[in-house]
Design a protein around this nucleic acid. Structure first.
Length: 401
RNA sequence: GCGUCGGUGGCGGAGUGGUCAAUCGCACUAGACUGUAAAUCUGGCGCCUUCGGGCUUCGUUGGUUCGAAUCCAACCCGGCGCA
């Protein structure tokens, strides 16, 4: 019995892209698809009914966060993630690998998932702060010790532990424990980290296969390797060689390197298994990923931006808090058909945001999630209809103008 | 009327002789956010600026002092108490 089935319906001519369907024990995901991020078993500010109404098919939660609170054992006791959070569709959990990065090398610094190499000050400050910077995660021989950002308690997570937690959480698709490195690390470190990630991948897989969970939970291996072509390809080859159900492409990217990295990797990964570009979700990046053979994306951007007032529109992003919108009776985006755009005005949402009313974050998240999910759906349909380039062109010409 | 306390930048509220264009919070304003340390964070916020600095401010007027938001006097305004 296989935990997951992936069927490709149509390829994107001349490119690596494809449209397909992933079938999990909890339902289907039509790919390419955007995965809503629900780190702590909640898509922030939204009820699961709302998430569903936006067209979301799958939700991704986080191992590290749920392990700390409320604890994976408790989630298991309540019947697993799906039941606990009342999401009846497919679910995924991230392994905590990203927290190795965000609470480790990136802690307290201006580095995140995507950095701009056009800003040299980041590199300088990186050098000057050296090894003195405090961090909540440090990498050991077999795993990572985390100091809880909630109460300071110390926890050691190994690949086996991450998988055990993910088994308890019970998502349909889970990820191998990996190390997401900073693009500012030297090649030598990237290589060392990659070897570690590979070792952890094997351990994650072996532990997973030793349990019955592997019959109904799919495990994705994660490709790393930073911006280096040799390492990326080596990683893609190695991770491909292991019996994973699918793959994640990880890393903190310099924006300029993302496309090449994705292409290098997807040319190597086996075509018949799904690929997930971890943590990526700006419109331009989604288009890039889809063209280059990515099937799944997850990203905090729509919900995080939505709560803060940065909203996607067909003509680019706007900050709805700006004074310009105080008396704007139009919808967020006059081309959007979401519930928010057909119901509420920019002026109203501007007011909610300025007044710090919770509904502002909810409406912003709803619109943004709909916008991104819907964009990916349109691009998917473009692949199926054979007019992907047209869909892409029409979207980008407006969005970037 | 007498006594008393007080009047600081849009608001609240620090400051009680120099290091004060004046801590801080709010509001305002703009920006950032890509496997959620995030309903978060950052910058600006008297006027002008070639970003070095320049100019005018702390109820009003005058005074003391090398120097005043800070001390003194008078006046104006407000709170409270007593008549």
């Amino acid at each position: 019995m296989k935990p997951l089935e992936f069927k490709i319906e149509k390829d994107l001519e001349g490119k690596l892209g494809r449209a397909g369907t992933i079938t999990t024990p909890h339902g289907a995901i039509h790919t390419p698809a955007f995965v809503s991020v629900g780190t702590k078993a909640t898509v922030k500010a939204l009820t699961m009914d709302q998430v569903k109404s936006l067209g979301a098919e799958v939700v991704l939660a986080n191992t590290y966060h749920l392990y700390l609170q409320p604890g994976d054992e408790r989630v298991k006791k309540f019947g697993g993630l799906q039941k606990f959070m009342n999401w009846h569709g497919p679910t995924m959990t991230d392994s905590g690998g990203f927290q190795v990065f965000s609470l480790g090398a990136a802690f307290g610094k201006q580095i995140s998932k995507v950095v701009s190499i056009t800003d040299p000050s980041q590199l300088l400050s990186e050098r000057s702060t050296d090894g003195e910077a405090p961090r909540l995660a440090t990498i050991g021989a077999d795993g990572v010790s985390f100091r809880s950002h909630l109460d300071g308690s110390l926890h050691y997570i190994t690949p086996e532990k991450s998988i055990e937690i993910q088994h308890n959480l019970g998502a349909d698709i889970i990820f191998a424990f990996d190390e997401c490195t900073s693009p500012q690390e030297e090649l030598r470190y990237q290589e060392e980290a990659l070897e570690r990630t590979h070792r952890w991948a094997k351990k994650s897989l072996e532990y997973h296969k030793s349990k019955d969970n592997s019959h109904y939970q799919a495990l994705f291996g994660i490709v790393q390797g930073g911006r280096d072509e040799g390492l990326r390809k080596r990683s893609a080859e190695y991770i491909s060689s292991l019996d994973f159900d699918g793959f994640g492409i990880g890393g903190s990217f310099a924006k300029e390197d993302m496309e090449t990295a994705v292409k290098w990797v997807n040319e190597i990964l086996p075509k018949e298994k799904p690929r997930h570009l971890l943590g990526i979700g700006e419109p331009e990046d989604l288009i890039m990923g889809i063209e280059n053979g990515v099937d799944l994306f997850d990203c905090v951007a729509p919900t995080r931006n939505g709560r803060g007032g940065t909203l996607y529109t067909s003509r680019g992003k706007i900050n709805i808090r700006n004074a310009d919108f105080k008396e704007d009776m139009g919808p967020i985006d006059d081309e959007c058909e979401c519930e928010v755009c057909t119901t509420y005005s920019r002026a109203y949402i501007c007011h909610l945001m300025r007044a710090h009313e919770m509904l502002g974050g909810t409406l912003g998240s709803m619109h943004n999630l709909y916008f991104i999910i819907n964009l990916v759906k349109r691009l998917r349909q473009g692949i199926i209809d054979g007019n992907f380039d047209e869909v892409k062109k029409v979207f980008l010409s407006k969005y970037t103008s």
